[in-house]
Computed example of a mutant assay.
Amino acid sequence: MTADLFDSAAEAQPSREEIADGAVLLRGFVRPIESELIEAARAVVTQSPFRRMTTPGGHLMSVAMTNCGERGWITDHTGYRYDPIDPRTGAPWPAMPPVFRDLARRAAEQGGFAGFSPDACLVNRYEPGTRLSLHQDKDELDYLAPIVSVSLGLAATFLFGGLARTDKPRRFRLVHGDVVVWGGPSRLAYHGVAPLAEGEHALLGRRRINLTFRKVL
């Protein structure tokens, strides 16, 4: 991946919206490299297919997911954690594609967090009606690094709250190509996704793919 593609992304996407202290929304940031991102995501899924995981409380997650990178996030009856092995395949998670890693670094830098080097990428598949309840990303050992979240496919309503579950979240409409970066004072903010509305995307059909980059160790 050449740097000029990412430079073009920044030029094509002048909107940088501060949504909270330490959190920004980069509109259309990945549109110039959307085809490469989708192709790389499909390669990951070929190696480690999507699956709906079960929470420690026995609930089947609404969203289907997989991972790539040095660690993958998993949940089962024993709890939430990161593991280097995909429990479904018994093999290490697929390597993080270079286009993923470079994108995450560039987006984090645009968000004010230079030097971001993710070691995990959660790949989530949303379909109409699926949702992600409000939660904190707190299974990582490194809270100094930001979270970088990339939206592909159908539009979604992103909920971004405060440091307490009772804080009323703000609602942001995320469309194909948008990126949200949060860290610093907002690193442990509660966030989620409202039930996905019906729709059809030209590239991904009736689904939304979300790439979430994290620094685990």
Rank of each mutant, 00 (worst) to 15 (best):
H191F: 07
D7L: 11
E198N: 13
A155M: 07
L211E: 02
G129Y: 13
S15D: 14
K138Y: 07
G184D: 13
A41R: 07
M1Q: 09
V181G: 05
E11L: 08
D119V: 00
R52P: 02
G183A: 01
L188A: 12
M1H: 12
V193M: 08
G177Q: 02
F213H: 00
F113H: 12
R105C: 00
G28I: 04
G22M: 09
A91V: 03
M96A: 06
L152G: 11
R27E: 13
L203S: 13
P92V: 01
R88M: 12
L132V: 09
I38Y: 05
I209D: 11
G205M: 08
V180M: 12
Y82D: 09
A41D: 04
V150M: 03
M53S: 12
V179M: 01
L141A: 14
A95F: 03
Y82C: 05
E36K: 00
W93F: 15
D178Y: 01
E198D: 14
P185H: 09
E200R: 10
M53T: 08
L154M: 08
A43F: 06
R88E: 15
A9E: 09
D7Q: 13
G161F: 10
G205I: 03
S62G: 13
V30L: 02
A12I: 00
R207N: 11
G111W: 03
M61Q: 15
G79Q: 11
G162V: 10
L203Y: 02
A107W: 01
A91K: 15
V99R: 00
T75P: 08
E39C: 04
V193R: 03
V24A: 07
Y190V: 05
E34N: 06
D119N: 10
H135T: 07
E36R: 01
E18Y: 07
A155W: 08
W182A: 07
G58V: 05
V44K: 03
T66D: 14
Y82K: 09
G192W: 06
H135I: 03
Q136S: 07
P195T: 02
R173E: 15
R214E: 02
Q110R: 12
A12W: 04
T66K: 10
G153F: 04
G153R: 02
A145W: 02
Q136A: 10
G57V: 02
C121P: 05
P118N: 06
A40K: 00
A95M: 08
R170S: 14
A20D: 15
S186D: 14
V216D: 11
S15M: 05
R206G: 04
A108T: 04
L25C: 06
V44L: 03
L217E: 15
E198G: 07
M65W: 03
D4C: 01
F158G: 13
L163H: 14
G199H: 06
T2K: 11
P14F: 03
G129F: 10
E34W: 05
A95I: 01
G22C: 10
A91S: 14
D167Y: 07
P14V: 02
P185F: 06
A145V: 03
R125L: 13
